[in-house]
Design a protein around this nucleic acid. Structure first.
Length: 295
DNA sequence: ATGATTTGACCGAC
DNA sequence: GTCGGTCAAATCAT
């Protein structure tokens, strides 16, 4: 009675923050890797660049594993996907000690949040739907998707999709987090540069888009969105001008877009939380300034 | 058989 | 207490 709460609370908090840092580090590592590929292509034959990047990647990997070890502690908690594997009961059993269902919700804490209007849910990425919910203030249900590679590659990208209130033929899609997965069929270089060049805008395929793969019809409920198989994704590559459903344009041309403030029904971003935490941790834990780091 | 989707339950934030 | 995000068993599709 007299022991656990304070300690448990502190550990939970530390674990939460650590998890955030781990996710950020994963993104850093993935971005660095991609940047390395791009730089090597651009500066082909320059062995110095390659050497520097290998060193950089090595440092990040070491930091990542250290952090990961620290977060796991000695207990070696089960991974989320095996959370309940030991209890094959008929009805779900909740393990109050470790069940994080719904934890850290409401406030979307992500360093990347984009809201896009689109005629189709198909954006060239592979998503897995994990839920659908009627939303109080909205006419249409909201569907929840996570990246197919969440578990195999730890990709933390999520999205929420909802039919637009204004135009029910449009989907309002909220992208949360960046893809850190490396599915060669779905991660175009353009998407990589999206987070680098902030002057660019992410736009969806508009109604009048050309060379756009369009759904034959928009279902009344998009719950039955078909998941793209790799084969489909590959065929998308051939039919669409980009494997992604989006083009990157200079900020001066942004016909259909989508900034967080146009979506009154959606969450407002709280990006600063995580950015701040990541900054703080990078400085405190690793002793370097990420601004310098990414320069 | 395998993987994706559906859907009710669960749980933390508000 | 309500609401929204997530989980996971059941079901469906391939």
């Amino acid at each position: 009675m007299e022991h656990t709460p304070v300690v448990a609370c502190g550990e939970a908090e530390e674990s939460l923050v650590g998890g955030t840092v781990v996710r950020e580090m994963a993104k850093i590592r993935a971005s660095t890797s991609r940047l390395g590929v791009l730089l090597r292509e651009a500066l082909e034959g320059n062995s110095t660049v390659g050497a520097v990047f290998e060193e950089l990647e090595g440092s990040i990997s070491r930091a990542f594993s250290l952090l990961d070890r620290k977060q796991q502690g000695g207990d070696g908690p089960p991974s989320s996907e095996h959370r309940s594997s030991e209890i094959p009961t008929k009805k779900r059993k909740v393990n109050p000690a470790c069940d994080r269902r719904g934890g850290c919700r409401r406030r979307i804490q992500s360093s990347s949040l984009r809201i896009v209007k689109s005629k189709t849910l198909d954006d060239g990425q592979t998503w897995r739907k994990y839920g659908q919910k009627e939303i109080q203030s909205a006419k249409h249900p909201r569907s929840y998707f996570r990246c197919t590679h969440k578990y195999d590659q730890g990709c933390m990208a999520h999205r929420q999709a909802q039919l637009s209130e204004d135009d029910p033929t449009d989907f309002v899609i909220t992208y949360i987090g960046e893809h850190t997965c490396r599915d060669p069929t779905v991660v175009p270089p353009q998407m990589v540069s999206a987070s680098i060049f902030q002057d660019t805008c992410l736009i969806s395929f508009g109604a009048g888009g050309h060379g756009v793969r369009q759904e034959a019809s928009v279902p009344a409920s998009f719950a039955s969105q078909k998941q793209e198989s790799d084969e489909d994704a590959a065929s998308n590559l051939t039919t669409a001008s980009s494997s992604s459903g989006y083009f990157l344009l200079p900020a001066t041309e942004n016909p259909v877009v989508t900034t967080p403030d146009v979506t009154s029904g959606f969450h407002t971003a709280t990006d600063l939380d995580m950015d701040f935490m990541a900054d703080t941790y990078l400085e405190d834990v690793f002793g370097f300034d990420d601004d310098e780091f990414f320069r």
